[in-house]
Design a protein around this nucleic acid. Structure first.
Length: 497
RNA sequence: GGCCCGUUCGUCUAUCGGUUAGGACGUUAGGUUUUCAUCCUAGAAAGAGGGGUUCGACUCCCCUACGGGCUACCA
């Protein structure tokens, strides 16, 4: 049997890390089992629909490299893939459910219900519409058949509720947590169909998973409490149940609760895969490689026996096993996410890195040929944490230092910097710059100055501070002319101040 | 409040009754390097607490504590 899994986001805003992780695990499971990864848009609540979020979901998954095999964009034979377009299908099944006495009509107004809710809250509990109190309300269980039909014909608003029998034990199975038992008395007769005739999540979800022949439901742990409701719906219909997998939640790094947008903004890490409406940068904009982003996210709540934790998507698919999914929530750690990104960049093929560098610094090609850009790539590769670092790391190859670190400049004064520079200028003006290292060595010996002083002075002139790649190599790339320019500029700066 | 799920270094995790409880990020100290980054070496760092079961428990059971989720005509 081919495994069919689905990712079922609701287009109520941007997808966040938790959503990407759920999508990823569905994708991994599908690929590992040669199965099919379906994306279904759960937009039954049209009021909550947010413009552009459906497109955002697709774009995000595309960027991450985990696009679905079946979806609105590439439909299979189980469409439509948008719940708002499946109302005809739901209607048929709703009728069936009523006939099978799995559900009943309820005419109670929202006002009445919220009153009850408030009353219960005041007593410190929660209101539950179920076997204990449903005879107190207006529903088809209390009304006669004709009365019910009359009210429906008259146009009285009604909802349809799941009819839960008391004193039963509902037994669900989660693949990573094993058996979960709940007494049916604890459950509520959940609303399955809203007053506008559209189904709620619980109903639509079960019907769709059945119709789309989903074999394994992989979703976030926040759905665990409604598993019994879903089990009951499957049983009322007499359908085979899929397997259920509830993924542990991704928690805030500091403080409490699920990873949130607010917390991300506050602490400066992204929670979305790609930019959302110019308001929030995503991992893409922050400079993450899609593979690295996925690599980190995969390891939140999942682990591998592989000796190397740096993996691309193919590796993860190969290693993936639901057995290694963790039960407890995982705290998000931006430092580790960045480290993994750095590792991915370090392992990039030179050609790929050069392509990346060229796209980030288009002006590089105006000043350097391909061979030189390869040399630049070589020099900066180990220093890139985020792709966005490339811009700064390349700056030294394109422009003179904008400013000098004055503290260090002061220290260099002690070595007669200006004099040193002028001697050095003469030296390299008539020498082969490719022998620079030897040149400097002999220069130091002859002038009886420390290597450090020369190197640091050079570095100041070239970069403006004391960090960066091997300055000798940098000079070779930049060339003699620019080097002399920069030395001159430092001298001028020094004389002025 | 009720129901459900969970709990191994600061963080992500390995361990499937017998281990000096392993790895990774971070951190500390050295080394390499003209500098920074990389890299290398070493160190500190964990089984929530209490009861059982067992020759033996991080591992199985129970209780407590703590954490999380759910408790909408949202998903």
């Amino acid at each position: 049997m081919t495994e069919r899994v689905r990712f079922a986001p609701s287009p109520t805003g941007p997808l966040h890390i938790g959503g990407v992780r759920t999508a990823l695990f569905n994708y991994l499971f599908a690929k590992k089992n040669n199965g099919v990864f379906v994306l279904r848009v759960e937009d039954t609540d049209q009021k909550r629909k947010v413009e552009k979020s459906e497109e955002y979901i697709f774009e995000s998954l595309k960027w991450a490299g985990i696009s679905p095999d079946e979806s609105v964009l590439n439909p299979g034979k189980f469409g439509p893939y948008r719940q708002s377009e499946r109302n005809e299908i739901y209607k048929r099944y709703i009728d069936e459910l009523i006939q099978k006495k799995g559900a009943y009509y309820a005419f109670d107004s929202s006002e009445r219900l919220s009153e009850e809710r408030e009353k219960a809250e005041r007593k410190g509990g929660a209101f539950k519409y179920n076997y204990e109190n449903r005879e107190l309300f207006e529903n088809s269980l209390n009304l006669s058949e004709t009365e019910t039909q009359n009210r429906i014909r008259k146009g009285d608003p009604y909802v349809i509720r799941l009819w839960i029998k008391p004193n039963e034990e509902v037994i669900g199975k989660d693949e990573i947590r094993n058996t979960i038992r709940v007494k049916s008395n604890e459950l509520e007769d959940k609303i399955l169909v809203k007053a506008d005739g559209t189904p709620t999540y619980h109903l639509a979800n079960v019907i769709d998973d059945h119709c789309m022949e989903i074999t394994t439901v992989i979703r976030g742990e926040e759905w665990l409490p409604s598993l019994p409701i879903h089990i009951l719906i499957y049983e009322k219909f007499g359908w085979d149940k899929p397997k259920f997998v509830h993924l542990p939640l991704i928690l805030n790094p500091s403080g409490k609760g699920k990873l949130s947008k607010r917390d991300g903004d506050k602490n400066g890490y992204p929670v979305f895969p790609i930019r959302w409406k110019d308001e929030h940068d995503g991992y893409r904009e922050k400079g993450f490689l899609p593979a690295a982003h996925l690599n980190y996210i995969a390891q939140l709540g999942w682990s591998t026996n592989a000796e190397d934790e740096i993996m691309d998507l193919k590796d993860i698919v190969r290693e993936f096993d639901l057995k290694n999914v963790q039960k407890g929530g995982a705290r998000f750690d931006y430092e580790k996410a960045k480290w993994i990104n750095q590792q991915h960049i370090k392992r990039l093929e030179k050609e790929e890195l050069v392509k990346l560098i060229k796209s980030k610094r288009k002006d590089l090609e105006g000043s350097y040929d391909t061979k030189q850009i390869f040399e630049i790539a070589e020099l900066i590769q180990d220093r890139i944490l985020l792709i966005t670092d490339i811009e700064n790391l390349c700056a030294m190859f394109l422009e003179k230092p904008k400013e000098y670190d004055l503290k260090i400049l002061e220290k260099l004064e002690k070595h007669n910097m200006v004099e040193l520079i002028s001697k050095f200028e003469k030296l390299i003006e008539f020498s082969d710059i490719y022998q620079l290292k030897d040149l400097i060595l002999t220069f130091c010996r002859k002038e009886n100055i420390g290597m450090g002083a020369v190197m640091q002075t050079l570095r100041m002139a070239m970069v403006g501070n004391l960090s960066g790649p091997d300055i000798v190599e940098v000079i070779k790339v930049i060339g003699k002319k620019s080097t002399l320019d920069r030395l001159k500029k430092l001298t001028e700066f020094n004389q002025k101040n």
